[in-house]
Simulated scan of single mutants.
Amino acid sequence: MTAVNSTSDDRTANNAVRHQYRVLSDQEKAMMVALKDKGAEFIELLHIAGGNPGVDKQASRELSLAQTKIEEAVMWAVKHVTA
Rank of each mutant, 00 (worst) to 15 (best):
M1F: 13
M1Y: 08
N5L: 02
S6C: 11
S6I: 12
T7Y: 02
T7A: 08
S8A: 15
D9M: 01
D9N: 11
R11V: 14
V17M: 12
V17E: 04
V17R: 15
Q20H: 14
R22H: 09
V23T: 14
V23G: 03
V23C: 04
L24Y: 14
Q27E: 15
A30N: 10
M32K: 03
M32Y: 00
V33R: 10
V33E: 08
L35I: 10
K36R: 15
K36C: 02
D37W: 03
K38T: 07
K38E: 09
G39P: 01
A40G: 02
E41I: 01
E41T: 14
E44Y: 09
L46H: 00
L46T: 00
L46N: 04
I48Q: 13
A49G: 08
G50Y: 00
G51L: 11
N52H: 12
P53R: 07
G54E: 06
V55H: 14
V55T: 04
D56Q: 05
D56R: 05
K57A: 13
K57M: 14
A59Q: 03
S60H: 04
E62V: 09
S64I: 01
L65K: 07
A66C: 06
Q67R: 10
Q67A: 05
Q67C: 05
Q67H: 02
T68V: 06
K69F: 04
E71D: 08
E72Q: 07
E72F: 03
V74G: 07
V74T: 08
A77V: 02
V78K: 01
K79V: 09
V81L: 08
V81T: 13
T82A: 13
T82S: 13
A83P: 11
